[in-house]
Amino acid sequence: MDTEPAALGRIRTVAHILDESVRIPGTTLRIGLDPIIGLLPVAGDFATAVCSLYIVAEAVRLGVPKQTVVRPLANIAVDTMLGSVPVVGDFFDAYWKANVKNAELVAAAISERQ
């Protein structure tokens, strides 16, 4: 049986890869694969949205409250819709970091029930 810490570790790893895995040289800004893959029109944003849904799937599997599951879904929807706007959407993806927010929401829900 999988433990909550292991699941939270996977969630944080996915969030890090999608939102913060690459530091932009000469700055403190970090981006992940989400804005990079999002450069591909439509398909890139769809692909990263599917990857983002992993966090939601783990949250459901962990039994977090439904209202906690809805917020990450809303964050993913905003990220996908606004991220799909040419050029501006890629900058939005770099700053929004929906996956990191979603990982924090799931972690907070788990810690509240303990």
Rank of each mutant, 00 (worst) to 15 (best):
P41N: 06
I37K: 14
L39S: 10
V64R: 08
V88L: 15
G26I: 01
K97G: 01
F46H: 03
G38L: 15
I17T: 14
G26Q: 06
S111V: 11
I36G: 04
V100M: 10
S21K: 10
G44S: 12
V78K: 06
P65Q: 03
V100G: 04
V50N: 08
D93H: 11
L73F: 00
K101R: 15
A108C: 07
F91Q: 08
T80Q: 09
T80W: 03
V56N: 01
P41G: 12
S21D: 11
C51N: 09
C51I: 11
A98C: 12
A98R: 09
I36D: 14
A43R: 11
G26T: 02
L53Q: 12
P86K: 06
A49K: 06
G44V: 11
R23G: 05
P25C: 07
G26N: 02
R61V: 10
T48I: 08
V22H: 12
L62A: 08
A109I: 09
D93P: 00
D90Q: 15
G44D: 10
D79G: 02
K66H: 05
M81D: 01
F46K: 06
D19H: 09
Y54T: 11
L53V: 10
L105Q: 06
R71Y: 01
V87D: 08
G44W: 12
V60S: 10
Y95P: 00
A103M: 03
A74E: 07
V56C: 07
F92D: 08
C51R: 12
E112A: 15
A77E: 03
V60D: 12
E104Y: 00
D93G: 00
D90M: 11
I110W: 03
T28Y: 01
L82P: 07
V70Q: 07
I55Y: 05
S21R: 13
L18E: 10
A94P: 02
R23V: 07
I24R: 09
K66G: 05
V88C: 14
G38C: 13
V85N: 09
V60E: 11
E112T: 02
A57R: 15
T27P: 04
D19Y: 09
V22A: 07
V85S: 07
V70D: 03
A107L: 11
D90E: 15
D79E: 13
G26F: 07
D19F: 04
G83V: 12
V78G: 01
P72T: 00
E20T: 00
N75T: 05
E58S: 13
D93S: 13
G44F: 11
V56G: 06
N99T: 03
R113I: 13
L53E: 06
L62K: 08
V70C: 03
L39G: 13
V85Y: 09
V50I: 15
A77S: 10
P41W: 00
K97H: 12
L18C: 15
I37D: 10
A98Q: 12
G38R: 10
D34Y: 05
F91Y: 14
G26P: 08
I76W: 04
V100N: 01
L105G: 02
